[in-house]
Simulated assay, not measured.
Amino acid sequence: MPTEDTAPPVTAFMLIKTMPEWLAMTPEERVNALETQVMPAVKARTSGVRSRFYDTEFYSTRVTDVWVWEADDHDAYQLLIDALRETPFWDRYFEVVDLLVGTENGYARTYGTAPVATIST
């Protein structure tokens, strides 16, 4: 849990849908595209961001993947989005269906209470 003097990390749930250009690639070409076209731009323009990737196409047709980004602060998050928009990721390989951005347990900090959760953080 962040101390009183630090801002909580920003977490973004990026709901995305694969586009035909992405689906036309082989799995090897997809990995190569992420490694050579997307991630270098993110690493060059940002610091303090981490990500996890979830496949959801087994259960949803509107959103095929969820890319969860955690940024140290709002500036790092903004730089991340700017970097992604300048790569083929944005609107060529994937449609960004929605962005759900928040901070974990924000209500607890606002009201000075302990977080209500099944897992202690």
Rank of each mutant, 00 (worst) to 15 (best):
residue 106 G to R: 08
residue 91 D to Q: 14
residue 1 M to R: 13
residue 101 V to Q: 10
residue 108 A to E: 07
residue 74 H to N: 08
residue 76 A to Y: 07
residue 119 I to K: 09
residue 9 P to Q: 04
residue 24 A to K: 13
residue 40 P to I: 10
residue 27 P to N: 07
residue 89 F to L: 12
residue 81 I to M: 00
residue 34 L to W: 01
residue 13 F to G: 10
residue 28 E to Q: 14
residue 27 P to V: 06
residue 56 T to R: 11
residue 58 F to M: 14
residue 113 T to S: 07
residue 114 A to T: 08
residue 41 A to Y: 01
residue 18 T to K: 03
residue 50 R to I: 13
residue 103 T to Y: 08
residue 7 A to W: 08
residue 62 R to Q: 15
residue 59 Y to H: 12
residue 91 D to G: 12
residue 73 D to F: 07
residue 40 P to V: 10
residue 27 P to C: 11
residue 59 Y to A: 15
residue 20 P to T: 09
residue 97 V to R: 09
residue 51 S to N: 09
residue 86 E to P: 00
residue 102 G to L: 00
residue 60 S to P: 06
residue 24 A to I: 04
residue 43 K to W: 11
residue 59 Y to E: 13
residue 15 L to S: 11
residue 2 P to N: 14
residue 91 D to L: 01
residue 94 F to I: 06
residue 16 I to A: 00
residue 52 R to E: 14
residue 93 Y to D: 02
residue 14 M to R: 04
residue 75 D to Q: 10
residue 53 F to S: 10
residue 4 E to P: 00
residue 9 P to D: 05
residue 75 D to Y: 08
residue 117 A to K: 11
residue 8 P to M: 12
residue 102 G to E: 01
residue 27 P to Y: 13
residue 60 S to I: 02
residue 75 D to V: 01
residue 100 L to Y: 08
residue 15 L to Y: 03
residue 35 E to M: 14
residue 66 V to C: 03
residue 73 D to Q: 02
residue 23 L to P: 06
residue 33 A to Q: 03
residue 8 P to Q: 08
residue 28 E to D: 15
residue 15 L to W: 06
residue 115 P to V: 07
residue 47 S to Q: 00
residue 29 E to S: 13
residue 113 T to C: 04
residue 75 D to G: 10
residue 74 H to D: 06
residue 17 K to P: 05
residue 48 G to N: 05
residue 85 R to E: 14
residue 109 R to C: 06
residue 38 V to S: 05
residue 11 T to P: 02
residue 7 A to N: 05
residue 79 L to I: 07
residue 40 P to D: 12
residue 88 P to S: 09
residue 36 T to C: 04
residue 3 T to Y: 12
residue 31 V to W: 05
residue 83 A to H: 00
residue 4 E to G: 07
residue 116 V to R: 08
residue 13 F to S: 05
residue 89 F to E: 05
residue 22 W to A: 05
residue 31 V to M: 07
residue 85 R to K: 14
residue 12 A to W: 07
residue 112 G to C: 07
